[in-house]
């Protein structure tokens, strides 16, 4: 069971990392380019409304019943939320921060992005991270139910095959506990710390 939990967490973390990177980048592009926002931005909103499990049949055709499929749909589950949060966050940065940074020589490239935009948008990004994390969990368990390999969803499926309700309930509790604990000790803490530091609380 520990093995299954670790395997699930590994998939989750990989997918989450990809989702954050892609999502933030997309959000940044949407916030900076009106054209992209009007075209792709709309598409992202549309994609966000699709339950990521709906992509699993596609993933199975493309990648087979493998880890990659599960990671793929987990990533899809989290990316769009992250992109929308990052877009809002970056759009809401007071323009004066950007002006001030420019006069101090950041330019408009990577340094501006990493040293000013990301920290300035952090309160929004954290909210995005929390939602993305929850979405990723959902997609992950749903994906694992169907795909092969060791994982919590797979044990859940085994439980069904064996008619072992207690095992299934046990897994559900593990999922809930992991989700809450990670949210509480990682994201909530980070959020509280940042809100205090930014003087928002």
């Amino acid at each position: 069971m520990l093995e299954a939990t670790l395997q699930s967490l590994k998939r989750l973390l990989i997918a989450f990392a990809i989702a954050i990177t892609v999502g933030t980048t997309l959000g940044f592009l949407f916030a900076r380019s009106r054209f992209l926002d009007d075209t792709l931005g709309f598409l992202v909103i549309a994609l966000q409304t699709i339950p990521s499990i709906a992509w699993l049949p596609f993933a199975i055709i493309w990648f087979g019943l493998t880890d990659t499929s599960v990671i793929f749909i987990t990533t899809l589950g989290a990316t769009w939320t992250m992109a929308v949060a990052a877009r809002t966050g970056i759009k809401n940065i007071p323009p004066i921060y950007l002006k001030a940074a420019q006069t101090m020589g950041t330019g408009m490239g990577w340094r501006m992005f990493s040293q000013v935009m990301i920290p300035a948008a952090f309160p929004h990004l954290i909210t995005g991270l929390r939602t993305a994390w929850a979405f990723a969990w959902r997609a992950l368990v749903a994906g694992e139910l169907i795909a092969k390999g060791v994982g919590l969803g797979q044990i859940l499926q085994d439980g069904r095959n064996l008619g072992d309700t207690s095992l299934m309930l046990c897994i559900v509790i593990i999922i809930a506990v992991l989700g809450t604990v990670s949210d509480h000790f990682c994201f909530k803490r980070m959020e509280d710390k940042i809100l205090v530091r930014y003087g928002l609380k």
Binding site: I96, K99, A100, T103, V116, P119
Partner: peptide, 11 residues
């Protein structure tokens, strides 16, 4: 530039 609103970075 020193702006009307200080524009210090809160982070």
């Amino acid at each position: 530039v020193v702006f009307q609103e200080h524009a210090l970075f809160p982070w």
